[in-house]
Nucleic acid binder design. Structure first.
Length: 890
RNA sequence: GCCGGGAUGGCGGAAUCGGUAGACGCAGCGGACUCAAAAUCCGCCGAUGGUGACAUCGUGGGGGUUCGAGUCCCCCUCCCGGCACCA
């Protein structure tokens, strides 16, 4: 055995061996339990960042651990290869997105291999390849035919200078990131996936996912947002500016929820006499406190009221400014304007003003709300600003409201000033009010979802083409199977806007139905679509005949999915939705894609930037800045930079720290060990260079310890006599086997690798201190070193491969099994108990492990440490916690 | 703004079911080895007071439940993630 630990030698050797022997190649094998271990695939942004190292090491530890426990393990890897950054890079560097992407994939694949991951590379896939996305197109056509994909108008960010649609990320402080122009909202037709049809199942199935973190399930529940409420119809007073025109069916509907779905938005236009304004509320108990009604700027009533009202039209137009991002909408100043229209209160017949308000969302409920300033914070602020009445109608069950209200009282309570409903509790009143409204045909109980259908159209180039042909006679025609895939041209030149929109060779085609001249859809799909089913394709990436085959049902569901917490809602919800879609077209038999989920915390780092004006920022990498006399400056020019927040490492903020130098300097094992040791997987990890040295030191120490042990000669294991251990030896062996139990539990159940590593460090520390060179001690050390090396193998596989071979000539890590706890080693006949007086630690005693409660109490009361603090007072109470402590209360 | 999460020594973190706060590591300090340095090895290392045994305080802030709270409950502050076109 080599005296020196040389990762630069043993790591490439181990990786070459694993590759040559194809040891991680997975095949369907029904004789063993299967374990499908999947880490979220990377976007090929250029090079690996620390988040990747963390993510893939966690997955690798679990994959290798389960392999040692006898599972048939699959751990695949691929590339989430479509996306916006490729177009940005193409613009910046004058290269084609495809070439840039493929070069990044090649580079990053090399980096991943250098990490020594137990990945089955034969299953590698890239979502930008036609053999992958053709199945996405195929599924699209099936869903389109089933009505689960439909077209409707949707609002996007529009850059009026570059004449292009902007992603939310490209809107900085309300301006386009390149042009600096004020962004506007614009409605365009898009394809939508009907995820709301699965809302109930997506919500209910969360209860059948015990392997998911509670916080993720809570976030998804809140996102889906099932709320039970009441739809209330407020009859409209005739418009003063319109001549009454009774609708043919009697009472017309001024309803907005699905107005957009009929692409032209015809629903509700021409509302006149006898119409109603529908609102949705979860607080029908506050109905008597309504002092105005507010509608969204896009609501048909607002549009109609603006006809001939220049001021209102201007206000509605001003609501069009700014981005569509909900965070922006929610934090902007609440503004509104009276439409001049009024509605009747359904019970009091009072006339109530209708406002247009920029805080009412068209996409939720009916796009209209009843405003109750006394019992809703936003309505309260709005009413104060516009001097609208505040009418309290709910008070606490056991108290009176302090009037006038200083702030909204938002709790439920008891009704007053509410006609026949006064005196009822909120819950009771909601039921009763809904019933009365129903009898009056002015409303009813309704369930509303916060979840909206998923708009998947993107006006971008580097994505999967939407397989639709627009025919002037046949309309939207899905591309037939035989003509799939619709291949995205890769040899393009990028400037502002998508090149395929200017490429007749792409979009000019004939209609699959009538063979007449037609045009292809030039929008591409949201990249979330690709990442919603890749986990299933890994089971059969080579299948050229169908999307999935029976192998998918062998491997699915994924036993362990690992990825960043930032994907807790969107990606994970879309993937769950897709799994159900694939189930319902007969492709998979399970209900959920991921049985167990580990959401790793973010790797975060400081951000630095310089303002370039017009809302543009140049982000500077942490590696390129330094402190000079208390000022943070760019190393290159010595000029100051602005210090931003500590945020997740991201390409867009250029705050990623390159793990490559870490690997180059110390090797993959040190990088892996450090990442696993620095913080538990679910916590966010603030990057710092410190600590890497310590991880490397531990590996050198481990190597040296094994080296010295091996060099001392072969161990005569047949002279290992368990019954003849000295107390010290017995203590050590108990520690070893307690440690094995702890490490197993840490990895398998707790998934807390930092403490698993700490336990191994403690074992090694104890082993080094263990004195003696007799056969007993040597055998004990042999047992301990083998166990430590095997327990560390999932985390630092390269060094452990060398060490196990040195410890047990002929042994191979790839066939090694996880150490087993020897229960007999855990036996202990004396234990230590803490002594407390009034909950404060005052001493400790040793008692027999099987001592009775009485004898423990006596021993505790007799202890001088305790008596000193009892002041001669009698014990009021003695609490004995078996195996832990005794607390004496005086 | 809304939803979810977090805060423990100089630093990363540990304390798994309400029961010894600070495991393990980093940094620092002292010592051994060395001509010297690096590496390695040994020891110390929350704060305050005390020569010391030890005592008091201490888990973001305030309150509560309990024999006992880092852990449970209520209120607050700050930080992080998500908010549907970043992935």
């Amino acid at each position: 055995m080599e005296a020196q630990y040389r990762p630069e030698v043993i790591e490439p050797e181990a990786q070459q061996h694993w590759e040559d022997q194809q040891v991680f190649r997975a095949t369907e094998d029904w004789s063993k339990p299967k374990y499908y271990c999947l880490s979220m695939f990377p976007y090929p942004s250029g090079k690996l960042h620390m988040g990747h190292v963390r993510n893939y090491t966690i997955g690798d530890v679990l994959a290798r651990y389960h392999r040692m426990k006898g599972y048939n393990v699959l751990q695949p890897m691929g590339w989430d290869a479509f996306g916006l950054p490729a177009e940005n890079a193409a613009l910046a560097n004058n290269v084609a997105p495809a070439g840039w992407t493929y070069a990044n994939i090649d580079y990053m694949r090399g980096q991943l291999k250098r990490l020594g991951l137990a990945v089955d590379w034969s299953r590698e896939l890239a979502t930008c390849k036609p053999d992958y996305y053709r199945w996405e197109q195929w599924l699209f056509t099936k869903l389109f035919e089933k009505g689960l994909i439909y077209k409707k108008m949707a609002t996007v960010n529009w850059d009026p200078v570059d004449l292009t649609v902007l992603a939310n990320e490209q809107v900085i402080e309300g301006r386009g990131w390149r042009s600096g122009a004020l962004v506007e909202k614009r409605d365009i037709p898009m394809y939508f996936m009907r995820i709301t049809a699965y809302a109930d199942e997506l919500l209910n199935e969360l209860d059948n996912l015990p392997g998911w973190p509670e916080r993720v399930k809570t976030m998804q529940r809140n996102w889906i947002g099932k709320s039970f409420g009441v739809e209330i119809h407020f009859p409209l007073l005739p418009s003063p500016s319109l001549t009454p025109s009774p609708s043919p069916s009697g009472r017309g509907e001024l309803r907005a929820a699905d107005a957009g779905e009929k692409a032209g938005g015809a629903g509700g236009e021409g509302a006149g006499q006898g119409d109603v304004l529908k609102v949705f509320t979860t607080r029908a108990d506050t109905l008597f406190g309504v002092t105005y009604v507010a509608v969204a700027a896009e609501h048909p009533l607002a549009r109609q009221a603006a006809v001939g009202n220049l001021e209102l039209a201007a206000f509605i137009h001003s609501c069009k400014q700014g981005s569509v991002a909900e965070a922006d909408m929610a934090t902007m100043e609440k503004k509104g304007m009276d439409t001049g229209r009024k509605v009747y209160h359904p019970f009091t017949n009072e006339a109530i003003p209708v406002f247009v308000a920029n805080y009412v969302l068209m996409g939720y409920g009916e796009g209209a709300v009843m405003a109750v300033p006394a019992h809703d914070e936003r309505d309260f602020a709005f009413a104060q600003k516009y001097d609208l009445p505040i009418k309290p109608v709910i008070k606490p069950v056991d108290a009176e409201l302090a009037l006038p209200l200083a702030e909204a009282y938002v709790e439920q309570g008891v009704l007053f000033d509410s006609g026949d409903f006064s005196g009822r509790t909120s819950q009771d009143a909601i039921e009763k009010i809904a019933l009365v409204l129903k009898n009056l045909k002015l409303g009813e109980k309704r369930i509303t979802w916060r979840l909206r259908d998923w708009g998947i159209s993107r006006q971008r180039y580097w994505g999967c083409p939407i397989p639709i042909v627009h025919c002037p006679t046949c309309g939207d025609v899905p591309v037939p199977d035989a003509q799939l895939p619709v291949v995205l041209p890769e040899d393009v030149k990028i400037d502002i806007g998508s090149p395929i929109k200017k490429m007749p060779s792409f979009y000019e085609t004939t209609c699959p139905k009538c063979a007449g001249a037609a045009t292809r859809e030039t929008d591409t799909m949201d990249t979330f679509v690709e990442s919603s089913w890749y986990y299933a394709r890994y089971a059969c990436p080579d299948n050229a005949e169908s999307m999935l085959d029976e192998r998918a049902n062998y491997w699915l569901p994924v036993d362990q999915y690992i990825g960043g917490i930032e994907h807790a809602i969107l990606h994970l919800l879309y993937a769950r939705f897709f799994h159900k879609l694939m189930r319902d077209v007969g492709l998979v038999s399970s209900n959920e894609p991921f049985a167990n989920l580990l959401t790793q915390g973010m790797v975060i780092a400081d951000t630095y930037y310089r303002d370039l004006g017009e809302g543009k920022r140049q982000w500077i990498n942490p590696a390129d800045v330094e402190e000079r006399e208390g000022v943070t400056v760019l190393k290159a020019d010595g000029q100051p930079v602005t210090v931003g927040g500590t945020e997740k490492m991201a390409k867009s903020k250029n705050n990623g720290v390159d793990p490559q130098s870490l690997i180059d300097q110390y090797g993959a094992d040190t990088a892996r060990l450090f990442m696993m040791f620095a913080a538990p997987p679910e916590q966010s990890l603030e990057w710092s260079d410190a600590g890497v040295e310590g991880a490397n030191r531990f590996l050198r120490r481990l190597w040296k310890t094994v080296y010295e042990h091996v060099e001392a000669g072969e161990v005569e294991s047949d002279r290992f006599d368990l019954s003849g251990l000295t107390p010290t030896q017995h203590d050590f062996r108990r520690m070893l086997h307690t440690g094995i139990a702890k490490v197993s539990d840490d990895i398998e159940r707790r998934k807390q690798f930092n403490t698993a590593i700490a336990a191994n460090m403690e074992l090694l520390n104890a082993l080094v201190k263990l004195e003696g060179n007799d056969a007993q001690t040597r055998a004990l050390k042999q047992e301990a070193l083998e166990a430590i090396v095997l327990m560390l193998a999932p985390i630092v596989p390269h060094i452990c491969r060398s060490l196990i071979a040195a410890l047990k000539p002929g042994a191979c890590l790839m066939s090694a099994e996880w150490p087993v706890v020897d229960e007999s080693a855990l036996v202990c006949d004396e234990i230590e108990l803490m002594l407390q007086v009034n909950g404060k630690l005052r001493g400790k005693i040793k008692v027999a492990a099987d001592a009775s409660k009485d004898s423990i109490e006596q021993a505790a009361l007799g202890s001088p440490d305790v008596q000193k603090f009892m002041d001669g007072k009698p014990a009021k109470k003695v609490v004995v916690v078996p195996g832990r402590l005794v607390n004496i209360v005086v």
